[in-house]
Computed example of a mutant assay.
Amino acid sequence: MENRELQQQVPGALFPRAVLFDLDGTLLDSAPDMLATANRLRDAQGLAPMALAQIRPHVSKGSRAMLAAAFPKLKTAAREAMVPLFLETYLQELGRHSVLFDDIETMLAALEADGAAWGIVTNKPEYLAREILPQLGWETRCAVLIGGDTLAEKKPHPLPLLIAAERMGLAAGDCVYVGDDERDIVAARAAGMPSIAALWGYRQDHERPAEWGADSVLESPAELLIPANWPQPLSSPGA
């Protein structure tokens, strides 16, 4: 994927030349898979199932945050020891319950029709992210995939976004990053990449996306179908 040479394309008339996305909470509603994982672990300890609403705000924060929500009475060291089991169990539930957010597939098709390339930069371990792509039919469409363990750094460090742009043969300023977590926007700003904060994703009550510094803040994936809602790439003429 990321090592294949992208075809030379005329910059699109509507959308940016390239778009990078976070995965969970941005493209994919994976909270149901996470819930099934957490409840299997809870059941093994004789605990009642938790509700989707209890785990959903924590999904974008990673396995440790979800374990803290699922096992709030456990000490940090005990939860840390459960991370490998959580990931192993999640691999078994991967894609069984999750769905794309509304209008995501339509939006990706619109990008492709406009000549834009798109890829994924996620903090999910790369092997888990790669398992998802064939389930969605994205293995030949996604131009680059960077996971949380692909490089020496992960978001909010800018390195994953910089390397993703480099592997697509573009400057960071030629791309736009879309994510639902503050770390996504921090990473994009540090990389010099325009960004969109996705309000349809996973967010805790205290978080204020309007204060993250994104170039655009959108309520739903349908708004990504409107070219005017995309920030201007920094390296475009007149930017």
Rank of each mutant, 00 (worst) to 15 (best):
E93Y: 05
K154A: 13
L74R: 11
A69K: 01
E112V: 00
K75I: 10
L161W: 07
H58K: 10
V59T: 02
A70L: 04
V121D: 02
Q92D: 12
L74Q: 12
V99S: 12
A68W: 00
L67R: 07
E88R: 12
K154T: 06
L136Y: 10
L94Q: 13
K154E: 00
R141P: 03
A129N: 07
S63G: 13
Q92V: 00
M82K: 01
L162I: 12
M66D: 01
K73E: 15
N123A: 02
A152D: 13
K124I: 06
L111M: 01
G148S: 04
E153W: 02
D102Q: 15
A81T: 05
G148D: 11
L133Y: 06
K154I: 03
H157L: 11
E88V: 01
L74F: 07
I132D: 12
L111G: 00
A65W: 08
A110E: 10
L74H: 07
E93Q: 14
L136T: 07
T106E: 15
P134H: 07
R141G: 03
L151E: 08
C142I: 13
E139P: 00
R130C: 13
P57T: 10
P158V: 08
L162G: 06
K124Q: 04
F86L: 14
L136C: 05
L94H: 10
A69Y: 03
T106H: 08
V83M: 14
G148P: 05
A81P: 03
D114G: 05
H58D: 12
G147W: 09
L151K: 01
F71Q: 10
G148V: 10
K75P: 07
I120K: 11
L67E: 05
P160N: 10
L85Q: 15
Y90V: 03
A77I: 14
S63M: 13
G62P: 06
Y127Q: 15
L108N: 01
T140G: 06
E153T: 09
R56D: 08
S98R: 02
R141V: 05
V59F: 02
H157Q: 11
V99A: 10
L108T: 10
W138V: 04
L133T: 04
N123Q: 14
Y90I: 11
G137W: 01
A68D: 15
V121Q: 01
L111I: 00
R141E: 07
P134K: 09
L87P: 06
P72L: 00
